[in-house]
Nucleic acid binder design. Structure first.
Length: 128
DNA sequence: ACGTTGACGTTTC
DNA sequence: CGAAACGCCAACG
């Protein structure tokens, strides 16, 4: 049983992820900043890793939380398991998000097309 | 109870 | 511009 602090953190992460609209993507760092803990992007990944199944009774589950819209700062899908990244790419494509794969099999979102959400947190203006 | 791991990001070299 | 180090902290062995 996690501590109440941890529960609050998890809930905050899930809630923030739910704010990401369909067809857009965000990064772990963005979620962390939105919550108010810009130095813990890693714990965002931890929270998503422990995201409850849709079968459970939890209001926050992999069916209500668009975990697939969260990628790393490079726009790539971090390889957590053999099929994990592939499943995420599929879910994103299903939403209309373009996901490219290089010769090494690494999957990445076409940020130059979709950009980040929210865009206001991006202080730099490179691509465009 | 303690050491290691890991859905990350920034800073440094 | 690429690689390595460091920080973060819950989960796991």
């Amino acid at each position: 049983m996690p501590t109440e602090e941890a529960q609050a953190w998890f809930g905050a992460v899930y809630h923030a992820v739910q704010k990401v609209p369909l067809g857009r993507v965000t990064s772990y760092g963005h979620i962390a900043r939105l919550i108010g803990y810009p130095e813990r992007p890693r714990q965002v990944g931890v929270a998503l890793k422990h995201l409850p199944s849709a079968d459970g009774n939890s209001r926050m589950n992999d069916n209500t939380v668009p975990w697939q819209r969260v990628v790393n700062s490079k726009g790539g899908i971090s390889p957590r398991g053999p099929d994990g990244a592939r499943r995420q790419a599929e879910a994103l494509r299903r939403e209309g998000v373009q996901v490219d794969s290089n010769s090494m099999g690494e999957l990445s979102v076409a940020l130059e097309v979709y950009g980040w959400f929210p865009a206001e947190l991006d202080d730099e203006s490179d691509g465009a």
